[in-house]
Write a protein that binds this DNA or RNA. Structure first.
Lengths: 121, 121
DNA sequence: TCCTTGTTTCGATGCCTGTCGATACCTCGG
DNA sequence: CCGAGGTATCGACAGGCATCGAAACAAGGA
């Protein structure tokens, strides 16, 4: 925390539209696009993160309190660590309302990933 | 009959319907489903693998010789290693035809991943 | 104010994985 | 049968990451 000049990662912010990358069949991926896409998929490449994400996504309104989803078989700090990863990847956004923190899905990012996997040609 | 060197995978074969997992919004993922899904996403969580996959997918017929796609900036053993990972995840299948080995995309698996990311709510 | 509950950060540890060079394997042409 | 070129495996190393307990931070109530 002693470095105030740390450059923020080019991660995605709440509300951003994310075109990101073309469908995989459109042609060879550039190195830069491949890195961006890989970061997104990596965020979902862990079973715990996948369960956390699905718990948020399956909640009414695509939103859930940490206290509602924290039971995934790992310690609470680990849950927080994974939620942070999902936030940094732009898949979830968080908002504190009083005592509790609520997480919401970021639909555009997920839609972008889905589009990239669309193999229709 | 021409049933030569079939590379057997304990995983998914081209043409198989892949029930695997429900859409993420359908409810909480079971531990088992989460592990299966995470393995698929993990296969695409590396930039090199993503580029290899896109090179195969963007080739006519969704098929390409290793010699056509091996130029991704890493050594030949590393390319082979990544292709093996993609094979083990069920995303690619391989077939030796004479001197060269051809890789094809396994459309159903990719479609399954895409379906899981479908967030229409 | 102090205490309780919810959440995040910190520091350490052990496993997993991407990468390479060397080498073995497979197929074809001579 | 042998050599050459394409592909896969092996062994080793370095960096990354999931996980935990402890501690710090935030908000509300007594």
């Amino acid at each position: 925390m002693s470095n105030p000049e740390v450059v923020e990662l080019p991660v995605l912010q709440d509300g951003d539209v994310v075109p990101c990358c073309p469908p995989i069949t459109a042609g060879e991926l550039s190195t830069a696009d491949a890195q961006k896409m890989a970061a997104m998929f990596k965020a979902l490449s862990d079973p715990v993160r996948l369960r956390l994400f699905s718990k948020v996504a399956s909640h009414p309104g695509g939103e859930a309190c940490v206290c509602d989803i924290a039971d995934v078989g790992v310690s609470q700090p680990t849950v927080s660590h994974h939620l942070k990863k999902l936030r940094e990847a732009g898949l979830l956004t968080s908002e504190r309302r009083g005592t509790w923190v609520y997480y919401q899905v970021a639909p555009s990012v997920v839609a972008a990933m889905s589009a990239m996997l669309d193999l229709r040609s």
